[in-house]
Amino acid sequence: MTLAIHLPQAGLRRYGSLLSPMAWGALAVAAVVVLLSLFAPVLAPYDPDYVDLNNVLAGPGGQHLLGTDALGRDLLSRLMHGGRTSLLGPTIVVIGSTVLGLLLGLVAGWSEGWLGKVLGRLFDLLFAFPALLMAMLAIALFGKGLFAPILAMTIAYVPYVARLAQSLVVAERSRPYVQAYRVLGFRTPWVVLGRVLPNLIPTVGAQSTLNFGYVLADLAALSFIGLGVQPPTSDWGAMIEESRGALLGGHILPAFWPALVVVLVVVAVNVIGEELSDRIGGKLS
């Protein structure tokens, strides 16, 4: 008698039941931050760039909920507007690296011959370069600002997605349902893009969610060292950098708030990403 092994299949189940309280909290934090940033022009109490020299380094409360910075700019408004640039970068990077990574991963996983091997080595090579180093290289080439680091980060995060997609595709292609498609005479592009790709998306999505947090922190770091977003544009990393002088003078709040938001968002995104991958991983075991 041949034995039937009923393996649940990779990333193919819906997410199903309720999220953990931890993930609910993370989701709430992320939602609040995203909404406040998105609607900053409407919701922000002040113009983020309005300089009020009579009211520098004001404490929280009163007219300014979170206080002001060394130029008297409202910190809450700057945080909300800063979220727009600080979240935009990672969003573009994650979308770009996911799309590119999925495509390359599909090709690498599907082709048995040299192409798969070459792509695999290429991913290894990219893994070897730290994302920050690549970003600095790009900045040296294209100049400061958002464009260069986003381009570099997108490339740097491609292998994280591609390697995962590749291994998933290798597993999927030997499954009987994919073989059945081949015997039925369906064309390979239809099978790969129309049938296999959707089955990878939950798992890859979990990885990309995790990537979002890392990219956010990396981009904030670049802005902090003055290579990313340039003043006076508000950005969380740049805000921390601008507040260094105040920090030395004993005023920690102008640096504390943006740092807190970065930490909150990165942790929230990580919790969500972990929850997604746990669920998918749990279905695998």
């Binding site: 039937a4 009923h6 299949q9 499954r175 009987p176 059945a180 498609y181 005479g185 064309r187």
Partner: peptide, 21 residues
């Protein structure tokens, strides 16, 4: 595609041979 009209196969494990989605 031409061959598919001549010969088809049914595999052993019905849990794996259908696309789950």
């Amino acid at each position: 595609k031409a061959l598919a009209k001549e010969v088809q196969i049914v595999f052993q494990d019905p849990y794996l041979s259908l696309d789950p989605r």
